[in-house]
Design a protein around this nucleic acid. Sequence first.
DNA 1: TCCGCCCGTGAAAATACCTTTCAGACGTGA
DNA 2: TCACGTCTGAAAGGTATTTTCACGGGCGGA
Lengths: 329, 329
Amino acid sequence: MTHEVKEIFAGAAPPAPAALAAKVRTLAPSMTRSMQRVAEAVAADPAGCAALTVTGLAELTGTSEATVVRTARLLGYPGYRDLRLALAGLAAQQQSGRAPAVTADIAVDDPLADVVAKLAYDEQQTLADTAAALDMVQLGAAVAALATAPRVEIYGVAASGLVAQDLAQKLLRIGHIAHAHSDPHLAVTNAVTLRAKDVAIAITHSGSTGDVIEPLRVAFEHGATTVAITGRPDGAVSQYADHVLTTSTARESELRPAAMSSRTSQLLVVDCLFVGVAQRTYETAAPALAASYEALAHRHSPARAAAAAAAEPFRPANPPPDTKEPPPP
Amino acid sequence: MTHEVKEIFAGAAPPAPAALAAKVRTLAPSMTRSMQRVAEAVAADPAGCAALTVTGLAELTGTSEATVVRTARLLGYPGYRDLRLALAGLAAQQQSGRAPAVTADIAVDDPLADVVAKLAYDEQQTLADTAAALDMVQLGAAVAALATAPRVEIYGVAASGLVAQDLAQKLLRIGHIAHAHSDPHLAVTNAVTLRAKDVAIAITHSGSTGDVIEPLRVAFEHGATTVAITGRPDGAVSQYADHVLTTSTARESELRPAAMSSRTSQLLVVDCLFVGVAQRTYETAAPALAASYEALAHRHSPARAAAAAAAEPFRPANPPPDTKEPPPP
DNA sequence: TCCGCCCGTGAAAATACCTTTCAGACGTGA
DNA sequence: TCACGTCTGAAAGGTATTTTCACGGGCGGA
């Protein structure tokens, strides 16, 4: 094995400022029950908790000091003292920020206007959380690897598969060789052919999607640089990832499947990767972008083409197996 | 020796806790020399001081712990601990105060952190714009049509093709028959088979993508209910659309292709459609969602791999090109 | 000029708080 | 059911904060 499995959490977590709530959600699944109680209390009332000592918070949550400290550690702080400072900061920020909070969940009988407002608000929140929690070091490393990679393969299934395709499309447009794979068998087949300097990216919200982990593992073992984009940095996928980019996890509900916010979060990460790579390869990226834009122009009818469309727009070379506009008898 | 109290924060008066600086000024005259040194340090660099222990701050100011505590008391806090918390809050507030200055365009030499901030900000903006501009009547009509449609076909190419697939995936999960098409020929072929009550959706940012307009036209002419999701409601595509849903158009730049914000906008619209439909068909949608979730569970390895990873690295339960061991008869 | 009071100050003791260790409790899979 | 590993809190062990206390120097009065 050419790579060393590194610590997953390690120093990866910078003293999280506003990203705390997001981090709590992200890490909650990997917490024990008592730790979750603590994390919940902290996320629910930062200001209140900031006023408490370890002992106080332990009593409030019905746990012990040790558990509180453990939770603080898991959230990325050296100890409770620092968590408390961050909490105070967060509280102050909330105070001044004063979010309007349409935080309510989407109900079956919500009018459409509410649905729109809530969805928009939630996705905005997700974006903010993701941006705040993104590890710049990991991102930078991933960008650097991508910028010089002879070839990039991206693995993702279902909703994450679309994100994978999105990234592939973008990279292609700036002249990089990139492909997205949704078929697990083909993905593995493909991963086998990777070599050093190539980059493999796995996208999975759960961090435990076997169909995506497997190709990444193969790529990893063949010496490619591997990147995981996941909402569970402690998930199985991270084992085979040189760089882990964490997406945020928003609360979900029956009418609002997790796929929604995870997708938003993943796309932001993917966009960041793309722009980062485009910056670093600007010399070739800019003309490539322009060229691809140019090449597609003829596929669009003149903007106000409207009726003119009939006149001389693009038309599929060979008419589909049908006679169009059959005026009904 | 005068009490050189310097103006630290200009008029940029943030709300409450900035009162600290004022307090320092007010109380300075009644302080002893060493206390003034402490107060000054604290006012000059709240963030820095928040990171210090009593001992640290005492050393920094060339005084003793006792003096630091006395100063904290004079400033109105029970002790240094609380002053420190307030300091952390103040620092956070200052930090966030200068955030909204990221409206600038992305430059080639922007550091990654700026790229992330700008992208996130822009996408948030796009979401807000889209939500505000969305026509509820059109949306309602589209939702109503979808909710009762025997079949839904969605057309989109390139970036919009991914959005089309996203919608199709979601509708499938709640038990609707929906398909996305990126191949223009097949799309037209497919459109021919539509009939009344079926719904065809075209997604195109430019509103003039021939490859997408054509199938929508065919669907339209065959009596299906047609919906256009476009950034140009006056574009050619609207001609054949019973309902037009407008996505917002954000400014783009060389490094930030239009595809980014249009995609965000389109996805929000698509999510709204989905939730709207799910609401109206809740009786069947809820169990379908649960079932699809259930069905996929086994594709995910046990969630808890975390730290134990080091000890006994997780390994996908089923080997990738899984022989599903079909017991021969 | 000298004396003595008093305030300011920091060293060090005392305390409060935080962290670590460790052994029992709990749940889980064989 | 048993054995094992994990989770948990009690208590020991350290740090940070607070308090105490004594020294030293300034200033007014003799």
